[in-house]
Every structure is written in C-alpha cells, then in structure tokens.
C-alpha cells in the first residue's frame, strides 16, 4: 500500500499538540488567526494610526525633487539625503522619465549609481580625505574576525562566487589604470615623433 500523498491520509510523523506544548514555549498561542496582528490583511482604522490630519502638511523645498511618473504629484514628505547632482544626477533625472514598469528606468539608475561612485572616488583623490580601499571595504576584519577559519573546511556554498568580489571592487580601477597608462604612452610616443 503506498503512503501519502498517493493516498488521502496526512503524514504520520507529526508530534501531538501535547508533545509540542511540553517542548516548545508558547506553542500554539497564536493558533487562532484573530490573535495574529496582520489578520485580516486590511483593517480600515484611520483613527488608530496616530495621524491627526487628513492629508499631511507639505514639506518645503519641493522644487526640482525628482519623482516617479507613476505618482500624480510629489508626495507631501520625502527624503533629502543626497539630492541629484552632477553627471550621475543628470543620468538619474533621465531615468525618471520612464515608469517603474520599464526595465530602462532601473537599469539606467544602476548605471548612474556606478557613475556616481566612479566620480566620487575620482573627486576624493583631490580631497584631504581620499577614499581608502583598505579601511572602507573593512577587509582588515579578515584578520581580526577569523577570515580563514570562518571558511576553511566549512563547506560554505558562497566560496564558489566570493572570489568575484575583489574583481568587482578593484576591477574598474585596474582597468582605468591600464587605460591611463596606454593613453600616456601613446601621447608620449606621438610627442617624441
């Protein structure tokens, strides 16, 4: 006779409620869906949120704030952590011409993120505090936090791709350095000729 699921019975090896109650503190205390705070999914209770407005007063300095074109209007409140600026800002503003439903919107934003990082790294070289890849990547924790013993012999699944991370971090800089060397050599050769 075949077993579940080829017959109607449920699996046999589920412990009884008494066994589980004895072993697990609080087993079943939220068994009734009414005790679960997100049941039902939607509960209409506008008075219960603490809001004392029908529509919030609008935050100031709204000019030039980018928004999704899926919004009818700029939201009354918004973050101001890093306003659009420079080349990356122009690229991002272009991305916001596309709706969230378009891949172009997100892929252009990711490209702008990379441009933002490259430009910021470049600018930092001319500042009093240039980017320091040793401290900023936190790689010194490899020595302080048992980097070798955390991996060796652990059969971790991430070791098959973690080697790509240093290439992702340093690769663009190595490539840019190579391009710079080739450019300087080319210019020098032309200058000599």
């Amino acid at each position: 006779m075949p077993s579940t699921p080829y017959i109607a019975n449920k699996p046999k090896d589920i412990p009884t409620p008494d066994e589980l109650r004895a072993r697990i503190p609080g087993w079943g205390v939220d068994f009734d869906p009414k005790d679960r705070p997100s049941y039902p999914k939607e509960v209409f209770d506008p008075a219960g949120t603490g809001a004392h407005w029908d529509y919030p007063e609008e935050q100031q300095n709204r000019e030039c704030r980018e928004r999704s074109i899926e919004h009818e209007r700029l939201t009354p409140v918004f973050g101001t952590s890093a306003p659009l600026h420079g080349v990356s800002g122009a690229i991002r503003r272009y991305a916001y011409r596309y709706s969230e439903g378009r891949a172009a919107h997100w892929l252009i934003l990711i490209f702008a993120d990379r441009v933002d990082a490259w430009v910021s790294h470049g600018k930092s070289l001319a500042s009093l505090r240039p980017d320091n890849p040793i401290t900023e990547t936190g790689v010194l924790s490899e020595g302080r936090r048992h980097g070798i013993s955390s991996r060796l012999g652990k059969r971790r699944a991430d070791v098959n791709h973690a080697w790509l991370d240093p290439i992702i971090v340093a690769g663009p800089w190595v490539a840019a350095g190579g391009v710079a060397v080739v450019a300087v050599r080319t210019l020098a050769r032309r200058f000599r000729n």
């Binding site: 509960v43 209409f44 506008p46 949120t49 809001a51 029908d54 919004h71 939201t75 409140v77």
Partner: peptide
C-alpha cells in the same frame, strides 16, 4: 517603515505601502 498614517494604504493597516512618503517609487 516611514509612513504617514493617513493615506489609502495606511488607513487600512498597510503601513509598509504608504503612498505619501516616497516620491521615487509607487511600488
């Protein structure tokens, strides 16, 4: 969650889906 407490979604308990705090995305 940053949320307003008064939009269509907040009024229904969906605080993580507030429509009044994120101009950059509606999703």
């Amino acid at each position: 969650n940053v949320y307003c407490g008064s939009c269509y979604f907040c009024a229904r308990g969906l605080y993580s889906n507030c429509h009044n705090v994120n101009p950059n995305a509606t999703a």
